[in-house]
Amino acid sequence: MALFLTIGFALADLPAQEEPLLHLTVVPRILNDAVQVIWEQTLIQDTVAGRPVVVNLEVGSTSVRLTITCYSAPDLSYLIVVQGFVRQGEVAGRNWRTSVQSLIVPAGERVVYFPLGRERRGAKHQMLVELHVEAVLP
């Protein structure tokens, strides 16, 4: 009885056969005043359509948590949903903001996400995260 319960529990964790495998590339970047990339790091994660990938970025007193979920459409396009949670500042006077954005892109299209907003507002540096989704061929 316990064996069957364990098997059922394990089966629940298996991805459904109809969910395609996706290759997600996440490249966070820091830009300077001249809009030049002064820091970047490439992150690659294989995932399943509909399964979120979380990226945590710590930049000094700024914490960025991105939950990226990709869904595949029959026409080979992708629906990318990005939920951003940003926390900035020390404990006293801490600013935080959450947002959810979605975008349908054709296969191969690159998207960019500005977790702190697109406007600089006098900030010396700016953060953006480039995303790229492609199907994993069997």
Partner: peptide, 21 residues
């Protein structure tokens, strides 16, 4: 995935996150 960005950068929270092609 966790990334600790090295160095000190001056970032400003200016608005909601934006997703663009």
């Amino acid at each position: 995935l966790k990334v600790q960005v090295p160095g000190q950068y001056s970032l400003q929270l200016s608005g909601d996150g934006q997703l663009l092609k």
